[in-house]
Design a binder for these strands. Structure first.
Lengths: 339, 339
DNA sequence: ACGATGGTCGCTCATATGAGCGACCTGGGT
DNA sequence: ACCCAGGTCGCTCATATGAGCGACCATCGT
């Protein structure tokens, strides 16, 4: 694992509740406390053993260790590889009732943040995917980064979850990602060669009958893990929004859309907003996703609107695992500690 | 206490004995371990509670914490105020069978080191001296520094342990130190206005009869705490050596002298070397000191010869508490882990 | 397909530990 | 000299924890 360097991110400063900073009186006492603390925390001796060694009662040893903790002689840090932020992860997990939340330290550079998200998401997949699973991949710039950072995976079936947005195909869209992941896993790939959004429902219907596309769709009800992206609802935070006509944008906005996931729309409370758009897309449906045991959302590298979009989709209950960055996490945690 | 800033000096890196660096596989696992570790080490929950919260067995929690420790997610440092070196203190204490050892970080500048030693020794006295004790003070540049750094002390009797060396009185010799400490403690002072070394035994004998000097000597058998210095046996490391004639130096050197304490001489094994010098000095005797419950030696800010001198005196068993610097400690610990 | 092998799991039982308590010092204030 | 307040100590007893073990499970070579 290449996530090497570490940072302190949380310190024992609390827990000074019960016995607030007792400072030992002099150097001899400090050295004595340090010695006992070393025996206990570093050498792994029991308090009873230490008590015998120093001719103290075990209670005294316990109190000494307590004093050493609260006076700062003993310092306990919970660190994580530099890019991971443990505390926000936990708070986020609890606040939104997620199975897992993984927060990556946001970089100044959004591209760098997106790369970090992709890298962590890739390793997460390697960690949670079991052999012979059916893995579904949606598309976003973030998931594209995940494809680039992909690491070897257990053998599994890889299915594309939705069509592509033409203006982004050059950079290597979801089709390439699906192929790449399948290659790294050694399993079959089911890409979807079709646009995400079509002019009308009929065309979409027709395309779904295409043998290749149907083959992908056929796997949707056997998905065990799905990786999806969350888009906002404005020019900057959503590739779907960008792809719509001004008229369509306006029409959907009027319904209170805040977030988009695989071209399906959600309001601030996480309720899905059904529109004609739903008929015009080539994508796994949100309802279908709801049946997938593990839905990983990768979303970050955006502004506050993006963060609120993430919150909206989380409230839908569709997502079991979130991978995001510390900026988004900060907004989510400050806004509404809901749920 | 003004010893504020802290440094890391020892880390949990060991204890990787039983379960050598197990690295958790992926980001999700790392975040999970960090969460559990935070609950346990920082929030003070029991393993049983944590097991219930996360739906694990308490054994699993214990193993997780073990993994978090050995993988470096949990880091425990034993720190001490920057100037104190805990590990050497402990090793020194054990190696020489001392009641206490306090090692001060050596500075580049010997004067600064001496000041630090003095400061720590002063605080040590404040810590260990009980009201109404009889406190004896010898003389050295180190103890002079202690006088300068002296902090308020419980009320006690302060007795000078030996005469002064004329060439050093200008700087404020032991007489001033005794007076200063007595003032800070609010107790009586018994200074000795006499030279440490006299030309012959008769003169020394006569001086001991002087009422002021006799008053000080009268307290020697009631001493409860004595603070002494340790000198080497060469031009650089001993003010006593400096005070002797070349002939005397040569004569004593031939007997294997390695260390000097209050003008009493010791060989490398810590055996006292009796000479005519013993009769020519105005000082508490080493034998008398042996009866004192607490003998604190303050010695440092010197070279390897000085360190060996300290080792010699420690081997005599006269000293119960040592205050020294990390350079001296390093030499002592590398040379002979004796005793 | 099969057995060997290394790893993980949760159990039992002996031990270590924490919470709370009364006994005992200790340092002022009257 | 006395007493009170605050602090420290080590006790009891209920609980948490560790060591060691067999059951189970996955992975691999044949």
């Amino acid at each position: 694992m290449s996530m090497v360097l570490s940072t302190i991110e949380y310190t024992s400063a609390h827990m000074s509740d019960r016995r607030s900073d007792v400072t030992p009186d002099g150097p001899a006492e400090m050295v004595r406390l340090a010695t006992i603390a070393r025996r206990f925390y570093l050498d792994g001796r029991s308090k009873v053993e230490i008590a015998e060694e120093f001719g103290l009662s075990r209670f005294k040893v316990a109190r000494d260790l307590e004093t050493a903790r609260s006076s700062g002689i003993v310092r306990i840090d919970i660190r994580l590889p530099a890019r991971l932020v443990g505390e926000q992860s936990e708070l986020l997990r609890e606040a939104f009732g997620l199975r897992r939340a993984i927060v990556v330290d946001a970089s100044e550079d959004p591209l760098e943040t997106r790369r970090a998200l992709g890298s962590v998401a890739a390793r997460l997949l390697a960690e949670i995917v079991r052999p012979d699973e059916v893995l579904g991949l949606a598309w976003s710039r973030g998931l594209q980064a995940m494809g680039a950072e992909m690491v070897p995976l257990p053998r599994c079936t890889v299915v594309q979850l939705n069509g592509v947005l033409s203006e982004h195909t050059e950079a290597g869209g979801s089709v390439e990602t699906v192929r790449r992941v399948a290659t790294l896993s050694g399993g079959p790939a089911y890409p979807i060669y079709a646009p995400l959004i079509l002019p009308d429902a009929a065309t979409a219907e027709t395309l779904r009958a295409d043998p290749g596309i149907a083959a992908a769709f056929a796997h949707f009800d056997r998905l065990t893990t799905a990786v999806v992206a969350i888009g906002g609802w404005d020019e900057r935070n959503s590739t779907v929004y960008q792809a719509l006509t001004p008229e369509a944008r306006e029409r959907y906005s009027a319904l209170g859309v805040r977030a988009e996931m695989s071209a399906q729309l959600f309001d601030a409370r996480g309720e899905q907003i059904r529109t004609d758009l739903d008929e015009r897309i080539i994508s796994v449906s949100a309802d279908r996703l709801r049946e997938v045991p593990e839905v990983v959302a990768v979303a970050g590298a955006g502004d506050e609107a993006k963060a609120r979009a993430v919150g909206a989709v989380l409230r839908s209950g569709l997502v079991s695992t979130l991978v995001t960055d510390s900026d988004v996490a900060g907004v989510l945690l400050s806004e509404a500690p809901s749920d």
